[in-house]
């Protein structure tokens, strides 16, 4: 098989800057089909930005992003929406529509994109809600849900159109251990049961180790390391070790760039 069919997403020489800050310089990466790929990295390395680039909510300055071999830069709005139907995305806080119920939230993509009869929509929605264990919450409003539940509903909504690629933006942030475990198991279960590709942005090293087939570590606008979580754990690279073991200082400096400490305290910098 050629590489295009092994990799769902391929990024070649991607440059992206926001204002004066360059976030990616010459980023290359590929995401394998049918796998759970974790994108890790210290805060501010552009993990979420990368997701937004892959889904073309943002456009790169230069470089190519190929989804199934198709460059997404030149798609028309219609083609882009066609492409996005193959994606499901779980936002950091769920991003449920707050003016409609849980049931209607999950039904939303169906109602917008299909002309299915109500009975069938009900059936599909309840199935998906059952899969995330929240069938009983169908009539609640999003504001009545806890953070973990909201994210599970959002997961049900992301799955409802049977996407080929599921994207999770920091799915573990701010969850208690039980909800975290639930989400970790769901990510794995969805990936294997539905045969989809999952992309996961996170910096929870333990959870990633439990769920990911492959991890990519971003730093300095590039992929600093990639491999299975075990390989990353036993690496010799200073940077990867610092990240995986949560050390305060190392290649990623503890201090934000600043003038000389002594000079500043003595007021010599103002001269």
């Amino acid at each position: 098989m050629d590489s295009a069919s092994d990799n769902v997403i391929e990024i070649q020489d991607l440059d992206y800057s926001r204002g004066p800050r360059q976030i990616f310089k010459g980023l290359n990466l590929s995401i394998g089909r049918g796998k759970v790929t974790a994108i890790m990295g210290p805060s501010g390395t552009g993990k979420t930005t990368l997701l937004r680039l892959i889904t073309r909510q943002l456009r790169p300055d230069s470089g190519k992003i190929l989804v199934d071999g198709v460059d997404i830069a030149n798609l028309t709005q219609k083609q882009l929406y066609q492409l996005r139907r193959r994606f499901g995305m779980l936002f950091q806080n769920g991003a449920l529509l707050t003016d409609i119920s849980v049931f209607e939230n999950v039904a939303f993509p169906l109602r917008e994109h299909t002309r299915l009869p109500n009975r069938l929509i009900r059936h599909v929605v309840l199935t998906k809600l059952h899969a995330v264990g929240l069938r009983g919450a169908a009539d609640l409003m999003p504001t009545e849900l806890s953070g973990g539940m909201a994210r599970r509903v959002a997961l049900a909504r992301a799955m409802v159109m049977d996407p080929e690629i599921l994207i999770y933006d920091e799915p573990f942030v701010g969850l208690d251990p039980i909800s975290m475990g639930v989400i970790v198991r769901l990510v794995r279960k969805m990936n294997d049961a539905l045969g989809i590709t999952s992309i996961l942005v996170s910096h929870d090293v333990q959870e990633i180790a439990a769920v990911a087939d492959c991890s990519l570590l971003l730093a300095d606008g590039k992929v600093a390391a990639s491999g299975s979580p075990d390989e990353l754990n036993n690496t010799s690279s200073e940077l990867v070790r610092q990240f995986m073991h949560g050390m305060a200082d190392g290649p990623v400096a503890f201090h934000f760039a600043a003038p000389n400490y002594a000079d500043q305290l003595l007021g010599r910098d103002s001269e």
Binding site: Q57, M89, F91, D99, E112, M161
Partner: peptide, 25 residues
């Protein structure tokens, strides 16, 4: 404020990701 909050809480982005244009919807 409703529309602004929908934007701040990613609801509009989520719609775009579901291939629904928020302007007409």
């Amino acid at each position: 404020s409703e529309i602004g909050l929908m934007k701040a809480t990613d609801q509009l982005s989520a719609m775009e990701m579901m291939a629904v244009d928020p302007l007409p919807r």
